[in-house]
Nucleic acid binder design. Structure first.
Length: 592
RNA sequence: GGGGCUGUAGCUCAGUUUGGUUAGAGUGCCGGUCUGUCACACCGGAGGUCGCGGGUUCGAGUCCCGUCAGCCCCGCCA
């Protein structure tokens, strides 16, 4: 009998239950134990009238987290002893028999944490993960994760998709993140790579005629971590043949609809609105806009330019613009707060932030010098500024103003409570195929290099790569990229041109991606798909900010497993088998 | 690779600003009392490499340098 599901309707029945000792309350003659299993808590009562003396004595010696098997009678609690704060608080189990299946040593961290006490440090929680995972909060997260994963599987299966597994030991591809490498014992000096995603395999499955594929796929990337980034994470990976964007969006929307319905019993508003990449960057400064904030970035160049204000005119003459946001109620911000905002803008890559406050009498602040009578009336009529507003602007090239305005927009909206509750989904489409590498200026894939370009020949693509748009898309929820995908490039010549634009020679393309291009020679259907970050979605569903709370055995920021002690050093003999010799001193971790 | 925060009893924290007697609290643990508790209550007890190493000083939990670990952020993550 599950502990947490017992209610008054079970009164009078004899049952057995098993679980962990959560708390013990010993009144001397009568003792109580809260017994816990995955479903919840139930109170065990040990009393001389019902329970054999030896069982009562044994109950007096129980430790927290001992594992018990109990036989007893479910009964309504006496009047006045009902606990309304407890799901099973109307009943208790009068114990007749007890077996201690396992006893627990004193605990390094408590499972039943006193309500006023903070959680143990992250370090101890990870080191003693088994105990941490026993807490109801984490157990709930994994129930949600299970329901969400099941929801995705059921929805995709029902939509005609076939789940296929792809290799973990793969070929390294030089694009993208750093690979986790696995040395080959049989082929000294050669390495497998663990997959950053099943990208190429799923495209090959399309070529292989599996026209609707999905996988709950583990992905591994050897990059530095964050609260929302683990070295191994899970994607719902989907690919389909003979499709365009609308088909992919419909599948993804239905999958998410089903996931939310089956997991949280909630209907999400599908279909999601769409926005081009250019529109997102123009109006929100980012390719993942948080639409809970309805402030938009506006172009003030026309309104304020040519009025003798050097910063504004200088930026425009240099080919830039003056863009900014109108912050309702922002005139209340203090001078020192505005100085801090200016500093934030600088840190975000802008030269600084221009601001002016709107008062009943006009405009005040550094940027007010650009506002003559005409500009003032344009601001009021076209930009809707009202007394009490703050106009916050950045002058310069879009590449500087967009990121800074994005940061300021989100920061001020949070501070002023201008962000609505709830969820704002949006598809962002029409990404550029390439963006310039910030260091070299060379083209780098903005999505990934297997994305279909829009309306371009291989020759045109190589001649002017930065002007090419792509059929890539992201699904953004509240400013977080949740899923991303594209219609893929299935034309070998175009695919070759993309890879060459990224700096590979024809020989390198053949060596690294020959298997893909070859597969595309024998009749490949047009195809496309998406991948959805399951960990992030579940984190969002349960309302936690750290992925560690939805991954059973996560790594630390330094990519260590504190519980099992990974990574670890290995014996030289083992390394010799692999043809590997270390040239530094042996690291601290040990093999045994 | 860089920046920030944290590290004191099994756990959660105070004490560090201004160096000075024996480093405290709550909780957990151990012993005891208690027949209706529910964070049970009450009495008693044990428990400390102040992360680690070095330095300054008559004297360092406290100041300085280094280092390790955890967390947050930037770079990075197609």
């Amino acid at each position: 009998m599950p502990c947490g599901l017992i209610d008054a309707s079970w009164a009078g029945r004899s049952v057995h239950v098993a679980g962990w000792v959560h708390r013990r309350r010993d009144k001397g003659g009568v003792k109580f134990v809260l017994l816990r299993d995955r479903t919840g808590l139930v109170q065990l009562a040990f009393e001389p009238e019902r329970t054999p003396a030896d069982v009562i004595a044994a109950a007096g010696a129980l430790n927290p987290e001992d594992v018990l098997w109990i036989r007893g009678d479910i009964e309504a609690r006496p009047p006045g002893a009902v606990n309304p704060d407890m799901a099973t608080g109307e009943v208790e189990i009068r114990v007749r028999e007890m077996t201690v299946l396992a006893s627990s040593d004193p605990l390094p961290i408590l499972v039943a944490i006193p309500p006023e006490e903070d959680l143990p440090s992250e370090e101890l929680r990870l080191r003693h993960r088994v105990l941490d995972l026993r807490r109801a909060e984490l157990q709930r997260n994994f129930v949600t994760r299970h329901l969400a994963t099941n929801g995705a599987r059921a929805s995709l299966s029902q939509q005609g998709f076939l789940e296929v597994e792809t290799p973990f030991l793969t070929r390294r591809t030089p694009e993208g993140a750093r690979d986790y490498l696995v040395p080959s014992r049989i082929h000294h000096g050669e390495f497998y790579a663990l997959p950053q995603s099943p990208q190429l395999y799923k495209q090959l499955l399309m070529a292989a005629g599996f026209d609707r594929y999905f996988q709950v796929a583990r992905c591994l990337r050897d990059e530095d971590l964050r609260a929302d980034r683990q070295p191994e994470f899970t994607q719902i990976d989907v690919e389909m043949a003979f499709v365009a964007e609308d088909d992919v969006f419909a599948v993804c929307e239905r999958m998410l609809f089903d996931m939310f319905a089956s997991t949280l019993d909630r209907e999400i508003p599908v279909p999601f609105p769409r926005m081009t990449w250019a529109e997102a960057v123009e109006s929100y400064g980012t390719d993942k806009p948080d639409l809970r904030i309805d402030w938009r970035i506006r172009d003030f160049s026309q309104a304020l330019g040519g009025r003798g204000f050097g910063i504004v005119d200088g930026a425009i003459e240099a080919g830039g613009r003056v863009r900014g946001i109108v912050v309702p109620g922002g005139a209340a911000l203090s001078r020192s707060r505005l100085d801090a905002i200016n500093e934030t803008a600088r840190r975000s890559g802008a030269k600084g932030a221009l601001w002016m406050k709107v008062t009943e009498d006009g405009f005040t602040g550094p940027a007010a010098r650009a506002v003559d009578d005409e500009a003032g009336s344009i601001l009021r009529s076209d930009f809707g500024v009202e007394p009490g507003d703050l106009v916050l602007m950045i002058a310069g090239p879009d590449s500087e103003s967009s990121p800074a305005l994005d940061v300021l927009r989100r920061e001020l909206a949070t501070e002023l409570g201008a962000s609505s509750e709830g969820e704002e989904w949006v598809w962002v489409t029409d990404f550029p195929l390439f963006e310039a590498d910030p260091e070299t200026g060379e083209p780098a894939a903005s999505h990934h290099p297997f994305t279909m370009p829009v309306d371009v020949t291989p020759e045109e693509l190589l001649a002017d790569p930065f002007s090419v748009r792509s059929r890539a898309y992201d699904l953004v929820l509240n400013g977080t990229e949740l899923a991303s995908g594209s219609i893929r490039c299935h034309e070998p010549a175009l695919q070759r041109a993309i890879l060459e634009a990224l700096g590979m020679t024809a020989e390198q393309v053949d060596a690294r991606f020959g298997f893909l291009l070859e597969a595309f020679r024998y009749g490949v259907p047009p195809h496309g798909g998406f991948a959805l970050g399951l960990d992030r979605l579940v984190a969002l569903m349960v309302g936690v900010s750290s992925l560690r709370d939805v991954i059973a055995f996560p790594k630390t920021t330094a990519a260590r497993g504190l519980m099992e002690g990974a990574p670890s050093a290995v014996d030289n003999e083992l390394l010799a088998d692999l043809g590997i010799r270390l040239d530094g001193p042996r690291a601290g971790g040990t093999d045994d």
